[in-house]
């Protein structure tokens, strides 16, 4: 079929999408691009903190609501809390202590910018697992809901203005898995020093100038020790040494990527600047496929 499709395209009559769809790498609305836990792999009883890469071009982020749960309270799309708890707690506009406890029991672990997300892993989290399965563990879930803010908010994050007509589609929903195990060498998040633009390192939050329409080579600057070596015990009981393989997701507000994903060992990508001057935000997220994550951002000034 591929051949015929190619032939069809060669004859000037494309087989392909009728309309052009928006691309994942182009950031033009409120998005959650990354969520990292610290530690990246937790033991029962650990206190885990979270942070998220939430971007919202041209508008502030209102709030980020965090939920966490063990497997039993989750579906394939993350935690599934009892919605009535939230409805009742916020019904009168104020949250009393009892309602606050109910919210925590329902899995609420943070509301940024008011409450930094943090979750204490239940000490009994692994109790249901056989001893030999605890090293591998299982994944808990963390839900992240990013709400848009209004432009007239206070300093820092803008408050959520529900009265302005917030729609369900305005909320960006995301979820992440958090490995919980008794692994003596738990996974760590990778690290990212910045992005090399045509060989010049730009640290997180830095800026670089690029000519309009120019193509630049982007390379994530990843320290050597980011790719962890570890041991996996197979079902047959054989210890198998493995090394993490990283993959990178690329995002920008404008321009065009040669490809918006890259996989070890070929992590570099080309990016072509837009044809007119301006400022373009760019974000790069690195994942280790074991739940670890890191990111960096830079600003490209197109001249």
């Amino acid at each position: 079929m591929v051949s015929v499709l190619l032939l069809a395209m060669l004859t000037g009559c494309g087989v392909g999408p009728v309309d052009t769809l928006s691309e994942a790498w182009r950031i033009d609305r409120l998005r959650v691009l990354g969520v990292a836990a610290e530690p990246a792999e937790a033991h029962p009883g650990d206190v885990v903190s979270f942070r998220a890469l939430v971007v919202s071009p041209g508008a502030p982020v209102g709030a980020v609501v965090w939920l966490a749960c063990l497997q039993g309270d989750a579906s394939g799309n993350g935690c599934t809390p009892d919605a009535s708890v939230f409805t009742e707690a916020f019904a009168d506009g104020a949250v009393d202590a009892a309602e606050q406890q109910a919210l925590q029991d329902a899995g609420l672990v943070g509301v940024e910018p008011f409450l930094a997300p943090s979750w204490t892993i239940p000490a009994t989290a692994l109790d249901g697992l056989p001893e030999d399965a605890r090293v591998e563990g299982f994944s808990a879930f963390v839900n992240v809901s990013a709400l848009p803010g209004t432009a007239d908010g206070a300093s820092g994050a803008a408050p959520v203005d529900v009265e302005a007509g917030l729609q369900a589609d305005d909320v960006e929903l995301a979820f992440k898995r958090l490995p919980i195990s008794s692994n003596p060498q738990p996974n760590r998040n990778p690290s990212l020093d910045g992005i090399e633009v045509d060989g010049v390192l730009v640290a997180d939050g830095g800026a670089v100038e690029v000519a309009a329409g120019a193509q630049v080579e982007l390379s994530p600057s990843i320290p050597d020790d980011s790719r962890e070596a570890y041991v996996f015990r197979t079902r047959a009981g054989v210890d198998e040494p493995r090394t993490e393989e990283l993959w990178v997701q690329w995002y920008a507000e404008d321009g065009a990527f040669e490809q918006d994903v890259s996989v070890d060992p070929f992590l570099d990508r080309a990016w072509t600047a837009p044809g007119s001057a301006g400022t373009v935000g760019m974000w790069v997220v690195v994942r280790d496929r074991r739940g670890g994550m890191a990111w960096t951002s830079l600003t490209v000034r197109v001249r």
């Binding site: 959650v32 995301a174 979820f175 992440k176 997220v285 994942r287 739940g291």
Partner: peptide, 9 residues
């Protein structure tokens, strides 16, 4: 509109 699976992008 879907929910974003951060681990699998």
């Amino acid at each position: 509109l879907g929910v974003y699976d951060v681990d699998q992008d």
